[in-house]
Nucleic acid binder design. Structure first.
Lengths: 232, 232
DNA sequence: GGTTATACTGACATTGTTGTCAACACATGA
DNA sequence: TCATGTGTTGACAACAATGTCAGTATAACC
């Protein structure tokens, strides 16, 4: 077997002539960021099995114990990744909603766009598929309800101004659920569907507009007094 | 050493009084089916990391080399699982569409239901996320276009009967895309969304009906001659 | 009964991945 | 310039997972 020739008394120095001692030293924060970026990339492209310390380390250009130094364990890395993605998504959604407050764009379309961003949604999809959601208190579900609440407030305000009937609360929740589900699904399979349907970039955009219009029409219809549906 | 000794004559048998020689021998087909069932279950509940030969073998009650005997390799098992799921989904969708041909139920709702079945969709989602779609010629994308074609034929026929305008082809594709995306997303995140929104079983059903109605209204609206929208 | 085909098993080999550890190198401040 | 803290590394340990193999048990057919 001679399994271990051992004798690690430096008999096998690779290149004695070269010092090759250029070791880069980042700040802890910077290193963590780089590692998380690489992990996110791997996860998005290859799935959870793509999160391998060795590979990620290679991507960043460090050795894998460095990752363990910053994140304790592989699980720690995953948790940090979840946390970061959640806060990123949160910020993205809130600004999307904030911007659409002045009605320049449809809030639902903004939400859809923010959610169906490939990287984020695929990442979240993985977390959901592997059942890691319970680890984080503020998962995407909670986000969804927050958004639904905001939307509903918006609708109620509108209804008050127009003097129309206040919309059903559940209706708003269903709107938010559909948007979320569709955005998630779109992030996963949308690419393939568009391809199969022969849609180009512009076509995908048309699809999103179509979806936004669909919901808008529904809202206008529902919120308007019966029989009246002059939306625009 | 007598360790091997072919001594299944129970030197360390847990119950020496019992021969314990009951080795079950299934037909190859049966064995394959059981293994695939177990793998599918693991995959649905634990994600891709749940497909471990040892675990699956334990679930079935066999040793892990038996799996390799039937499927060559782990990858072979995965491919077989993909193939079976694809054909199952195909059949499910076709019968769903077939049944709804006589208008007892909305075709879109049937499709949604068939697609958002947790097991199937989660499995497919996994395949899509890991980019394993190219392996199979007949992925869900192709299925979607087939369904879209059928739906479109349906709509055109209706239009002809009613004497209304033929609907835009892209509109039908968008319908199918939305349904597919939403169903996929629902399979992944729907559970959590419903929970966060405080929906029970009946609530989830209401959501599906709501979605079906949304699309139906859209179809009625779009296909009707301009200005006329008395659907029901 | 005997023969054959094959589903199946236990033990082992192999490989890959996480995690540990002692030592090293780089920055900062005295 | 030395001391200190810590980012970083190579080598190794420990474990888990897939895959191999020779051999065993069972069903079917003669």
């Amino acid at each position: 077997m001679s399994r271990t020739a051992s004798s690690h008394t430096a008999a096998t120095s690779p290149d004695p002539a070269k010092p090759a001692q250029k070791r880069v030293r980042r700040t802890a924060e910077e290193a963590r960021r780089l590692i998380l970026d690489a992990a996110e990339k791997r996860l998005a492209t290859q799935g959870p099995e793509g999160i391998r310390l060795q590979d990620i380390a290679r991507d960043v250009g460090i050795s894998h114990p460095a990752i363990l130094h910053h994140f304790e364990s592989r699980e720690g890395l995953v948790k940090a990744l979840i946390a970061r993605t959640n806060t990123q998504l949160r910020e993205k959604l809130l600004t999307a909603l904030g911007n659409s407050g002045d009605a320049a764009q449809d809030p639902i379309e903004s939400v859809f766009e923010a959610l169906s961003d490939r990287g984020t949604a695929r990442l979240l999809a993985w977390l959901l598929l592997t059942g890691r959601v319970n680890d984080t208190s503020k998962g995407p579900q909670v986000l969804m309800t927050e958004i639904a609440d905001r939307l509903h407030a918006h609708r109620e305000e509108n209804a008050k101004q127009k003097g129309t009937l206040a919309p059903d609360r559940e209706d708003t929740f269903f709107l938010a659920m559909l948007t979320t589900s569709a955005a998630f699904g779109d992030a996963i399979i949308g690419r393939y569907l568009a391809e199969a349907a022969g849609l180009d970039e512009a076509g995908v955009k048309r699809f999103r507009n179509w979806f936004g219009k669909l919901l808008r029409q529904h809202v206008e219809r529902t919120d308007a007094p019966a029989g009246d549906d002059e939306g625009k």
